[in-house]
């Protein structure tokens, strides 16, 4: 499966500036996530990623700049878009008193199409018990449930916010394998924010690096590595380690 060229990008930002209180989360962010790609937004672990995610999901309007999710404004078209988008937030947000089975049933009532069997199968692969309350699961299991729930309606776009934060290697691998499997089966577009460079290096085909809220590097990962002859970690260190703010935007297309 190859990325569809010429189709509307799965996610598009144009001059997006987000402020939360006095902090500027992102400033003048412009990027485009091609359909079917795995796009990694890299940056130091800091405040504001959840603000960005809220804007992408249409829970907060973009005051300055534009966001297009699957070609539409998420603030205005949130209900329609959420049927085609899956979300795995950094902090699992499901109601703690519900079990995984109840959550799947609940989500099934909220979506028009829901594959409860696939969700159960994913949870089995993750070895998550279906009848224990969500709040009593470990962090890794909660993340697994969130991921399984986010894929139950076969979304076209999957948004992940630091999916491997706080997970051990085994759990991390399980998450990525699940994502890859879905990617392979359905050509889902994946957009993830992360700071775990080593893990994402094999999967991502596009990266964008944020430094102090500004985009300092963006492009096809393969081309970037070929051009510089460096690994992703090395590229990141060279770019994000720059203190001067005049590390301008470098866009390299494949």
């Amino acid at each position: 499966m190859s990325a569809q060229t010429g189709a509307v990008p799965a996610l598009e930002m144009d001059g997006l500036t987000i402020r939360y209180g006095r902090t500027t989360v992102v400033e003048g962010l412009s990027l485009a996530v091609p359909r079917g790609s795995v796009y990694a937004l890299l940056g130091r672990n800091g405040a504001g990623k959840s603000s960005l995610l809220r804007v992408l999901l249409g829970q907060r309007p973009a005051a300055i700049g534009r966001v297009l999710l699957l070609g539409e404004d998420p603030w205005k078209r949130r209900t329609r878009l959420m049927a085609r988008v899956g979300v795995v937030p950094e902090e699992p947000d499901a109601p703690p008193e519900m079990t995984a089975a109840q959550l799947s049933a609940f989500c099934g009532r909220l979506h028009a199409r829901w594959d409860g069997g696939a969700v159960a199968e994913r949870l089995r692969r993750f070895e998550v018990p279906l009848d224990r309350p969500f709040g009593s699961l470990s962090k890794g299991q909660r993340g697994a449930v969130s991921l399984a729930l986010s894929l139950g309606h076969a979304p076209e776009l999957l948004l992940l916010d630091d999916p491997t934060l706080g997970l051990d290697v085994v759990a991390r691998d399980a998450v990525f394998q699940e994502v890859i499997g879905d990617l392979a089966d359905r050509g889902t577009t994946v957009f993830t924010t992360t700071h775990d460079l080593r893990a994402i290096e094999g999967i991502a085909d596009h990266v964008a690096i944020l430094h102090s809220g500004r985009l300092v590097l963006a492009g096809a990962l393969e081309a970037l590595k070929a051009e510089r002859g460096l690994s992703l970690e090395q590229i990141f260190a060279s770019v994000a380690g720059t203190r001067a703010s005049d590390a301008g935007i470098t866009e390299v297309r494949s």
Binding site: R78, V87, L110
Partner: peptide, 11 residues
């Protein structure tokens, strides 16, 4: 975050 859970669904 519970409200965010609902808003992340097509509701």
């Amino acid at each position: 975050g519970r409200l965010g859970f609902l808003f992340s669904r097509p509701l």
